[in-house]
Write a protein that binds this DNA or RNA. Structure first.
Lengths: 231, 231
DNA sequence: AATTGTATATTTGTATACATTTATTTCGCT
DNA sequence: AGCGAAATAAATGTATACAAATATACAATT
């Protein structure tokens, strides 16, 4: 009935169902616009409807599942409009968090950030693109932690869930974008090392803005191939 | 069993309980750190635990209710740290939304915005401070609608719920701040009329930043009077 | 008096039964 | 065949019963 997380945190059935469903949506096992049925999921996951309902309602507030006017549920559609909105908000908040992080960073923190940056650059040089993404996420997560800004970080994590889904829909990021992303992280690290928080903020905003283009392109491919409604 | 909203939208018992509890928290009938009991609320509202649970869980994701490590619930404490975070995020998003709104605004929209601005200024001149707040909210909500940015607006509405609670905790806004706020809205309107979206964004950020000081002051009073833990 | 252990009570978590709403099918009618 | 109403099925909404975890009260022991 109760499982334990790596951190020792207790996870109820409801939480496990939430994580499982979220993962299925992000990974694409549950596809955009696919209908969601509480009974069916309960049977499939071998739990009662109660934890399923509670998990679904949480995903509904996070807009990974949406409720139709008749009360039925479906996986949220993808939409170019939403991608644009998400990246606009994300750019501002990543910038804020990065700025606050650098303002609070100690020498040891900067050193750690440097280590992550090296991993990104090496991965890009060796064309290990998924590692560029992985260590890139680590770079951002490290700044989230340093900033201590729970409000902004909570929002960012939710936005990132959506972005992770969009990323899965499209083809793998191309080599040139991967290398550019590595350079951008390197520049941010240099600014961080100089304790120029304002510059880090500005570079971060540009970095997010640059990754928007790639996201829009891949969702464009998806929409074309599936000639789906946007929303 | 089913009630209807002004807009004709259907509201289930769960939704009604959610709105009722949120209102009680914002208005202070449920006080910071007060414990929340599902059974008790169900009895008091004369519904079963199910809709209460679902409403509470939603409020939990919005962080108006928090869950203790032992699974018990309490009304979220107030915290100067959180106020600072909320206003930092809000400033950026209000700026973004205002900019986008002005970029999309037609002449008729600007005219309507002007009418709201007049109401704010008149209310301030006549020292009707609650009206300044009311029409101020209308000013912002109008921009939310114009922007069409659902992602940002959803976040802003949640932040505003928290701010509404903080506002209730402290004394009424003083006359000078009220007049200053009116001037700030007037300046934003002037920039909007000139279609200077970038300037509107900048003025909006400053406006939010200025209102932070008042919020921090009143929460300071509250914490002093209640010598409460921040969180 | 402090502490530990046990019994009891309270609270939350999950399962299930039932109610209500919505969708689908069937059947009668033209 | 096409349309519409009634019947049926299927989904979500709510209530309730029970299980599991936690807190409380109190006695026993030191």
């Amino acid at each position: 009935m109760w499982t334990f997380q790596s951190g020792g945190k207790r996870l109820s059935t409801k939480d496990l169902v939430y994580l499982e469903l979220k993962n299925r949506i992000i990974e694409g096992f549950l596809k955009p616009n696919q209908s969601v049925n509480e009974d069916q999921l309960a049977a499939e996951l071998e739990v009662s409807r109660t934890p399923v309902r509670e998990a679904v309602q949480r995903l509904e507030t996070e807009e990974l599942i949406i409720r139709l006017p008749n009360g039925r549920l479906k996986v949220a559609p993808i939409s170019a409009r939403e991608v644009n909105e998400i990246f606009a908000v994300r750019g501002l908040l990543e910038g804020l968090v990065a700025k606050e992080a650098i303002q609070k960073a100690g020498d040891e923190d900067i050193r750690e950030l440097g280590e992550i940056t090296v991993k990104i650059v090496e991965a890009a040089e060796q064309d290990r693109r998924s590692d560029v993404v992985r260590y890139g996420s680590e770079f951002h997560a490290f700044l989230y932690r340093l900033s201590g800004n729970k409000t902004a970080v909570k929002i960012l994590n939710q936005l990132n869930d959506h972005i992770a889904r969009y990323r899965r829909l499209g083809p793998t990021r191309n080599l040139e974008r991967s290398r550019q992303a590595a350079r951008e992280h390197q520049e941010m690290f240099e600014a961080a090392r100089n304790r120029d928080a304002t510059l880090v903020e500005e570079l971060m905003r540009r970095h997010i803005s640059n990754s928007l283009a790639a996201a829009i392109e891949s969702i464009g491919h998806y929409l074309a191939e599936n000639n789906a409604q946007e929303d």
